[in-house]
Each structure stands twice: as structure tokens, then as C-alpha cells.
Design a protein around this nucleic acid. Structure first.
Length: 203
DNA sequence: AGCACGATTAACT
DNA sequence: GTTAATCGTGCTC
């Protein structure tokens, strides 16, 4: 039986949280119904020292959620169109988070198709802005507590993804970020989507 | 007030 | 692989 990930899950080193979120299930409750998918791609963003992290700007109106306690959502707007979702990690005062970059849809397919059906199905939730659109995630969910019992956005434990299915690469989209941060292998990808859905069904 | 840029996407060559 | 779209944010003047 899947359970909602507790605050202590997020209160760990961000690279570990990013790795361990692979295979977990992102769940959005809307109109009393579940829209969900298995997390298959994440990225770690690690504080003010990490020049790829928004926290490099310090504590501002926008970055304030990053400085809060772990287990809350940092949802921000970018490129004039897109909302991106990041569970906050580490204790309050340490501005770190994990960007969820892709999921495999498992529940609420009709709702997802209604929002993403103009694109071919493989592209419904294969990007951070796409999955936010698919699940109806926007700025209203910024600072939402992912661990609260009545939360309409949370993450459930899944079956762990074995290391042989996990690859790491540099983070995406950091065009003007200097080295070494631009190239650090802080992106985690669960390969072989078919195998992952099989894992879930076996669970 | 103005400006450069962005943790992207979709469409195109 | 390349590029336009689009607007909030943070910084400078």
C-alpha cells in the first residue's frame, strides 16, 4: 500500500532525495479525483553556492519557499508560460530543492488528455512544464505542504528503482551557468519506462 | 523605467 | 539541430 512520503524523507541531502524520488508517484487531487504518474526524471538544486539554483540570488520574494522547511512545494513561473514544481529539501534556512522533470501518467488519463491531448501521448508529461500543465499545477500550489494529510498535491512511495535503471547527466537548460555547476551530474533519469510501469504493476 | 534573462515548449528546417 | 514565443523577476540607471 503506497503511503504519503513524510517530512523526514525530504529532510535529507538533496542528491539523495532526487535519486530516491525516481519511482515514487506524484499525485494531484482535483475535483476529488486523482491525477498521478510515476516520477522518472529529477534534478537537484543545492543552495546559494550552486550558481544553477535560484537561491544564488539570495532570499527574495520568489525564492522564499526554498528557505522554508522541507516537504513544501516551490512552484515558480518561467519563460512566460510555464510552471515548474520542486519539493523543498533540507532543514529551513538551507535553500535546496528537487525539480521534478518528467512522470509516466498512471491515473487520471482523461484529465491529462484533456489538457495535453493536442500533443502525442509520449509528450504529455515528458518535461517539467508539461507535467505541471497535465496535473493542473500552478502558482496557487506554491508553498503547499506536500506532507499534510489534506494536501491536494503530494508524493507517494513507490517501488524503488534499481541502480541499473538510473543514469545521471548534467542538468538541463543552464545555458549561462558557469562551471562546474553547469556540468555537475545532478540530473537523475530512470531509463526503460516499460520496465518501470511493470515494476509498479508488480508492486 | 528599462533591460537581460530564464530549472521551457512547440514548431520548424 | 534551431528558434520564436512570452512575461515575471531581479538588477541597474
Amino acid at each position: 500500500m503506497p503511503r504519503r512520503l513524510p517530512r523526514r524523507f525530504y529532510d535529507r541531502p538533496t542528491l539523495e532525495v532526487a535519486r530516491d524520488l525516481l519511482g515514487a508517484r506524484l499525485v494531484r487531487i482535483q475535483d476529488g479525483r486523482r491525477i498521478a504518474g510515476i516520477i522518472v526524471e529529477t534534478e537537484a538544486y543545492c543552495g546559494e553556492e550552486d550558481l544553477g539554483c535560484h537561491a544564488k540570488a539570495g532570499r527574495t520574494r520568489r525564492t522564499e519557499p526554498l528557505y522554508g522547511p522541507p516537504g513544501y512545494a516551490y512552484v515558480y513561473f518561467t519563460y512566460g508560460n510555464h510552471w515548474l514544481l520542486c519539493p523543498v529539501t533540507r532543514p529551513a534556512g538551507q535553500p535546496e530543492a528537487v525539480l521534478i522533470r518528467a512522470i509516466l501518467p498512471t491515473e487520471g488519463l482523461d484529465a491529462i488528455e484533456a489538457r495535453r491531448g493536442r500533443q502525442p501521448r509520449p509528450h504529455w508529461t515528458d518535461g517539467p512544464g508539461k507535467l505541471a500543465q497535465a496535473l493542473g499545477i500552478d502558482g496557487r500550489l506554491n508553498t503547499a505542504d506536500l506532507t499534510a494529510a489534506n494536501s491536494e498535491l503530494f508524493i507517494e512511495s513507490g517501488r524503488p528503482v534499481p541502480d541499473r535503471f538510473v543514469t545521471t547527466t548534467a542538468r538541463i537548460g543552464l545555458y549561462t551557468v558557469p562551471e562546474p555547476w553547469k556540468s555537475l551530474p545532478w540530473r537523475f533519469v530512470a531509463a526503460l519506462p516499460g520496465d518501470l510501469t511493470q515494476l509498479e504493476e508488480d508492486a
